[in-house]
Amino acid sequence: MDELIGFVTGNKNRRKLLALLASRNELNGDKLAKNMRIARPSADKVLGELLDRKLVVQNDNSFSLTELGAAVEKRMQSI
């Protein structure tokens, strides 16, 4: 878990994306990029990194946190 927290906190866009999904539960890629104020390709890159580490899951066109992603995000709030 500490390794995942270090991975997420090492990049502001990863932190923002996890926090955004935690507060909104589920968003599509366009809305994530818009809310984060970054280009869609940048959002896709971050989503890919989080998908690879099983922190985010894709349901059709939307993304949401996995149980692991929610646990990491919750633990980051206490840091």
Rank of each mutant, 00 (worst) to 15 (best):
N25W: 04
R24P: 00
A22P: 01
K34Q: 14
F63N: 12
L20F: 04
L65H: 02
K54E: 06
K31N: 12
N59T: 14
L21W: 09
N13V: 06
L18R: 05
A33K: 05
S62M: 09
V46W: 04
L17R: 04
A22G: 09
S62A: 13
N11T: 12
D60N: 15
N25D: 06
K45S: 07
S64V: 09
S62Y: 07
G48E: 04
S64A: 15
R15I: 10
N28L: 05
T66V: 07
T66E: 04
N25T: 10
A43V: 02
G29S: 14
K16S: 03
M36Y: 04
M36R: 08
V46H: 06
T66P: 01
G29C: 10
N11G: 10
L18A: 13
N11D: 15
N59L: 13
L17V: 03
K16P: 00
K16Q: 05
S62V: 07
K45R: 13
L51E: 10
V57N: 05
D44L: 11
E26Y: 09
R24D: 07
L50E: 03
N35R: 11
A22K: 14
L18V: 13
D30W: 09
L55A: 04
R40F: 07
L50C: 04
L32C: 09
S64I: 07
L17Y: 02
G48Y: 06
P41T: 01
L50R: 00
N25V: 11
R53D: 03
F63Q: 13
L17D: 03
T66M: 05
